[in-house]
């Protein structure tokens, strides 16, 4: 059994990753995901069989990224940005009190 697989058997680890991922999950879901992620990582472990010494990783498979001047471009009227907001007030997005 791979180390990653064993790691996912521990519910506390799965819960920690869920919080990092900002996902609220109930206990049965945590258990199910832990098992499935363990299986998937067990499959991924076959990558360890490949000798990659001295191989540069690919960052992305396209041509070079194009850069442009970082100038101000207004694409949306302020109102249009708020139309889909769950809650807004005085032209700003509203969230629960932070401090």
């Amino acid at each position: 059994m791979s180390s990653a697989r064993a790691l996912f058997e521990d519910k506390a680890t799965v819960r920690k990753i869920a919080i990092l991922a900002r996902l609220e999950l109930d206990d049965p879901t945590l258990e199910l995901l832990g098992r499935q992620l363990g299986d998937i990582l067990g499959y991924v472990d076959q990558l360890n069989a490949v000798d990659t010494s001295g191989v540069e990783p690919t960052v992305f498979a396209g041509e070079t990224t194009r850069f442009r001047p970082d100038d101000l471009r207004i694409r949306l009227a302020p109102g249009a940005s708020l139309d889909n907001a769950p809650d807004h007030s005085s032209g700003a997005f509203r969230v629960p009190k932070v401090i």
Binding site: L47, N48, V50, T52, V55, E56, P57, T58, V59, A61
Partner: peptide, 10 residues
């Protein structure tokens, strides 16, 4: 590791 194998696939 996955990025390195991506290079080999390319």
């Amino acid at each position: 590791k996955a990025g390195q194998i991506q290079t080999l696939i390319r």
